[in-house]
Design a protein around this nucleic acid. Structure first.
Lengths: 106, 106
DNA sequence: TAACTATATAACTATATAGTAATTTATAAA
DNA sequence: TTTATAAATTACTATATAGTTATATAGTTA
C-alpha cells in the first residue's frame, strides 16, 4: 500500500471538494455536451450569473475546465474527463447500496 | 449522455463531500490496512478522540465504513472500496497536471 | 455494586463557502 | 465617443461543518 503524506491527502481532499457541490456538478454535467458560454450555463442551470461565474472560476483554477473568449462570450469546456469516471464510480456504488438495502429490508 | 436529475447530482455531491476532507481521507487510508479501533485511529491520525468518532459516524452513515463492537473497543472497517479508485483517479490527474505544468514552465 | 476504559454525543467556537446584489471590466456595435 | 451586453469581481449574508471540551453511554472487571 502506498503511504500518502498529509500534504497529498490535503491536495486530494481539496480537489474532491471541487466536485462535492451540486451546482458545480450541474455545470460540469452541462459542459459534458460540449463547450458553453457563461450565459448558456446560467440558463441551463437556473443559477445566478455571479454564482455561475464564481463556480467556473474555481473549476478553472483547479484545471478542471478551460476558457476561451469569443467576442463578448467566454466559453468554458472540460479539460479533466476523470470527473465523469469519478461520478460513475459514485453512482454505481450508490446503486449497489440501494440494492443491498432493498434486499435486506424488502 | 445520461441525463442526471438535480436530486441525483445532490446525492453524488453529498457522497463526494464525505471524501473531501483530509482527516476523513487519513482515517480511510489507515483503514485500508484493515479494521482498526477508534483508539488506534486516534493514535495513527493524531486527531482528537471526539473528532475521530464524529468522522467515523459520518462515514458509517454513508455506508463507507462499517463497525463491530468487540468488548470495549469498536472496530471500523471499509465497506466501500470505490473510495480508493476515486483517490487514484484524482492522484493520477494531479500528476498529469503537474507534468503539463512543468512542461510549460520548465 | 463501584471503578475503570472506550466510544459517542452535546454544546460551543471558528472558519469556510454557497448564494446574492451591486459594481466593474471587457468587448462589440451604433 | 456612447450605448449595450457578457462576464468577473466585490462585499455581504446565511449556512454548514471541522475541531474542541465536557459529559454521557456502553461495556468490563474487581
Amino acid at each position: 500500500m502506498k503511504q500518502l503524506k498529509d500534504e497529498a491527502l490535503e491536495l486530494i481532499a481539496y480537489r474532491l471538494k471541487m466536485l462535492s457541490d451540486p451546482m458545480r456538478l450541474k455545470i460540469l454535467h452541462a459542459l459534458q455536451e460540449g463547450e458553453k458560454s457563461v450565459q448558456e450555463l446560467v440558463q441551463s442551470t437556473g443559477a445566478g450569473q455571479a454564482n455561475v461565474s464564481k463556480h467556473l472560476s474555481l473549476l478553472a483554477q483547479h484545471n478542471i475546465v478551460g476558457r476561451t473568449r469569443k467576442g463578448l462570450h467566454v466559453y468554458y469546456y472540460i479539460t479533466d474527463d476523470s470527473i465523469f469516471k469519478i461520478c460513475d464510480l459514485v453512482c454505481r456504488n450508490m446503486e449497489k447500496n440501494m440494492k443491498r438495502y432493498s434486499e435486506v429490508f424488502g
